[in-house]
């Protein structure tokens, strides 16, 4: 049963990369230098975005199920911070995905889609660093949404709408440089850009060397802001918690 889940994850990612690359190939048939970006760059962008997505999966209903079932009461009694527990749970499963899903998918896609290597070794290292920060930005954003389960009990709709926004605005499905200028300017003011777009642009060498520092500082700033908001929500939630039996 779980083996099917595992293969489904690998095949899903490959199919998504394949579909999107086919569409971009069709787009580039008419114009082989769209907005000064080559097809190869876009293909690598798309592949990287989906590879990152297969690790950036988090347990969206973990806190909700703890709250609705009342199990959270026994978790709060344990001598470990509940937030640290949720965080390590998610990071742990992401590390598992790196080994079991990302590596096989990566190897297959390098052969299948002929990915470009990082712009330079330095950019490759910075990409890795920035991707970790992107993961943290997404985690902090998610944590805020998860916290809402203390007030709403069922968070399916909020989680789904959050996912939709992240998909469109963070550059997970479309390179943000293809967005209309006004929307791109707007996205730059949001944390979404920091999740997928910043690391991948660094990998591809699309960010001028001088601006990389700013981009990474921006990511860190978003982590701090979102984590702070999550912290405040958590404090409010602790007092709000009402358990039915447990």
């Amino acid at each position: 049963m779980y083996r099917v889940d595992y293969f489904a994850g690998v095949i899903n990612t490959l199919v998504m990369i394949f579909v999107n690359i086919a569409i971009w190939k069709a787009i580039y048939e008419a114009d082989d230098n769209l907005g000064g970006v080559q097809l190869k760059v876009v293909m690598t962008y798309i592949a990287l975005a989906f590879l990152m997505q297969c690790i950036f999966v988090m347990e969206d209903y973990f806190i909700e199920s703890k709250v609705t079932s009342g199990l959270i009461s026994s978790d709060l009694l344990k001598p470990i911070s509940f937030r640290a527990y949720v965080f390590s749970y998610n990071v742990g499963s992401s590390v598992f995905r790196v080994l079991m899903q990302l590596l096989p998918t990566l190897v297959i896609s390098i052969f299948l889609f002929k990915l470009l290597p990082p712009f330079s070794t330095e950019m490759g290292i910075l990409f890795f660093f920035s991707a970790v920060l992107g993961y943290l930005v997404l985690y902090c954003l998610n944590f805020i949404v998860w916290m809402s389960s203390f007030w709403f009990y069922y968070t399916f709709s909020l989680v789904t709408i959050k996912d939709a926004l992240v998909m469109v605005l963070s550059g997970a499905l479309i390179p943000l440089w293809f967005l209309p200028q006004w929307l791109f300017n707007f996205v730059k003011l949001t944390p979404f850009e920091s999740i997928f777009f910043t690391p991948i642009s660094i990998y591809l060498g699309q960010v001028p060397a001088a601006d990389i520092k700013t981009a990474i500082i921006k990511q860190v700033a978003w982590i701090v802001v979102l984590a702070l908001a999550g912290h405040l929500l958590w404090n409010a939630a602790k007092h709000k918690l009402v358990l039915q039996g447990g």
Binding site: I23, I27, L34, M167, V168, L173, I174, F178
Partner: peptide
């Protein structure tokens, strides 16, 4: 939420086609 989720693919298509 279902509506918004399904609109994602439409939004992406829209964004691509306003460009090309």
């Amino acid at each position: 939420a279902v509506f918004v989720r399904e609109m994602v693919s439409i939004a992406v298509m829209y964004l691509i086609l306003t460009r090309v």
